[in-house]
Structures are given as C-alpha cells and as structure tokens.
C-alpha cells in the first residue's frame, strides 16, 4: 500500500494505492493521524486505486472518521471501486461515510458545507 498526500486549500487528499488489510492498516491509520495531528481534519481518501479492504481496513477508516468529526472535520471518500463499495455496503459503513464519485466532488463538498 502507498499513500500520496496532496493539499487542496485546507483540505488534504490522501491517494491510497493497493489493498488495505491488517498487514498495513496501522500504516494507513498513522498516515491519517499525522494529518490530523497537524490540525488537518478535513480529509479526502482517494480510493480510485484501492482494490480491497478487509475488516482491519474498515476499522482504520472508522477510527479516522471519528477523530476528524470530533475535531469538527470529516474524512470523505472518493472514487470507491465496486468491489470495495460492496464491502462498505454490506458492512453498513455506507450509512455513516460520505462517499463521492471523485476527488473533485469530495473536495468541493467541504467548501459547500462551509
């Protein structure tokens, strides 16, 4: 798994590549936590190149969403691929996550809400 971070005004976009599972979920959580520690709590997770997530990956997302929302921000998902969307659906996570068709819409959603 690789994480590439870019900044769009006050919003940090974390583009993730590969699978998210128990072998690397800590690394992802730390990537998110590092951004949050710097006060960046408006995050977008670009999932266009994520092909799998397990329960450990779901826990990482859940922990990050909670941290961001507690600090007044949010973690928003973009470009979720069908196989990952199915896992998010069946594990009930689509009911609590904000998911957008692409990064642009996810980034703009923060501006619209402001």
């Amino acid at each position: 798994m690789q994480i590439n971070i870019t900044q769009h005004d006050t919003i940090f976009v974390l583009a993730i590549t590969g699978s998210i599972d128990s072998l690397n979920a800590d690394e992802l959580s730390q990537g998110f936590a590092a951004s949050i520690a710097q006060g960046h709590v408006r995050l977008v997770a670009d999932f266009s190149l994520v092909n799998y997530t397990s329960s450990a990956g779901l826990r990482s997302l859940l922990g990050t969403v909670k941290s961001c929302r507690l600090a007044g921000g949010d973690l928003r998902m973009a470009s979720v691929q069908p196989q990952v969307q199915r896992v998010l659906d069946i594990a009930g996570f689509t009911s609590i996550l904000n998911i957008f068709p692409d990064v642009r819409h996810a980034v703009e959603s923060f501006t619209e809400a402001a």
Binding site: S55, L58, A91
Partner: peptide, 16 residues
Amino acid sequence: LAFQSAAHHGEMILIL
C-alpha cells in the same frame, strides 16, 4: 457486520 468489523480483535475476510 458493521458492529463485528469494528469490534473484532483480528482479521475478518468476507467472502460474498
């Protein structure tokens, strides 16, 4: 599944 995914101490591999 939402609860169990959040609460599990190990790994759950879903086959659907």
